[in-house]
């Protein structure tokens, strides 16, 4: 077993911390600008970089044993299962079952008396 513990120096800690702050500013800035289709991917990209910094440096995964790295990344398999199987529903709904959002949105506000019966 690898019992060696890597301790991050104050200098390194500060650098990572500073980088995280810069990326936080980037998050806020990106939220104020409109990139059209790329709004969502960009936000996710920034968030992923921030999360990776925390995981690799603050949580020490970069210096940890391979075993723990494998365990950590295997949790992504479950994330993949989660997304793929939900997509098998959301992406495959038929139009007659699935009412588009904007139609509901434009409809009058729901109240129990007004729900149409067909």
């Amino acid at each position: 077993m690898n019992t060696h513990h890597h301790i991050l120096s104050v200098k390194h800690c500060s650098i990572i911390f500073g980088t995280l702050l810069i990326f936080t500013l980037l998050t806020v800035a990106a939220a104020h600008m409109d990139f059209g289709y790329f709004n969502f991917p960009l936000a996710m990209l920034i968030a992923t970089i921030k999360a990776s910094l925390v995981v690799f440096y603050f949580m020490g995964l970069k210096f940890d044993s391979t075993e723990n790295r494998v365990i950590f990344f295997s949790s992504f398999i479950f994330l993949a299962i989660f997304i793929v199987l939900i997509s098998s529903d959301v992406l495959f709904r038929k139009a007659d079952v699935y009412v588009p959002h904007n139609e509901i949105f434009n409809a009058k506000k729901f109240s129990s008396e007004e729900v149409p019966h067909d």
């Binding site: 299962i81 098998s88 529903d89 959301v90 709904r93 079952v97 699935y98």
Partner: peptide
């Protein structure tokens, strides 16, 4: 147990594809 949850949703408006898989 992690890949069967949709069996609770067969009549919830879930897609037929998902119904079949689950």
């Amino acid at each position: 147990s992690f890949v069967v949850w949709g069996h609770h949703m067969f009549t919830s408006g879930q897609s037929e594809t998902a119904n079949f898989i689950f």
